[in-house]
Amino acid sequence: MMIQMSGISHQFTIGKRAKEKVVPVLKNIHLQVEKGEIMAIVGRSGSGKSTLLNLMSGYIRPTEGRIVVAGQDVTGLTEGQWADFRLANYGFIFQSFQLIPGLTAAENVELPLVLKGVDKALRKRRTEELLEQVGMAEYMTHYPGELSGGQQQRVSVARALVMEPPIVLADEPTGSLDSENEKSLLTMIRQLNHELGITFVIITHDEQVAAIANRTLRLRDGAVQHPVPVSGSVQGGVGI
């Protein structure tokens, strides 16, 4: 079991003092993500799918429930512990790429290694390998502003994989891409899952994206609508 969320509920408090209003976003969610599977979390806007991913990422804390990732109970981790945990276990792919504009493609990819304190030579080699792998070797010294959306997303995929994380969390990864780049990214995700056994959790509202997943969790109004059973073998059995 790679990720296990048990009895997760989450609510936001909005409004000013004395006029506060509690908005429940997630209600008693139970979720298990197996090692090496691609899980898609699908739902309309406001269904709570991004909140679920944020809880997995440690960006927010659940009002109720327990989260276990890679065998470690992460529910009560401090901010600093969460930072270390994210660096070691997660790769992130964001809808709007979230590359640092002042850093080149190579520097963006290298960033997690820098944060980890990896040696410069090793960093350089690993960064070049990754950018080569995602077909961006010739754009290493380009700044994000000089790259197309598809190219930026490839760089962000390279950054997500540079630490060789067991889990990649992708939030609407194709949301800002055209159909050609979307297809290319999905192919890449399936390939990485198949070849490296990386577990993917993908948030999407796009059924085509959800189609590459082994399982799809549908959310509606903060609750699981109906879970879909595992389709085929998990450990890279889906094929590309």
Binding site: G80, A83, R86, F92, F94, L99, I100, P112, L115
Partner: peptide, 15 residues
């Protein structure tokens, strides 16, 4: 935003 990105991918607050 840069700080947010760094924190999101695992930068320790002390760093």
């Amino acid at each position: 935003q840069d700080i947010g990105i760094m924190k999101a991918i695992g930068a320790h607050p002390s760093v």
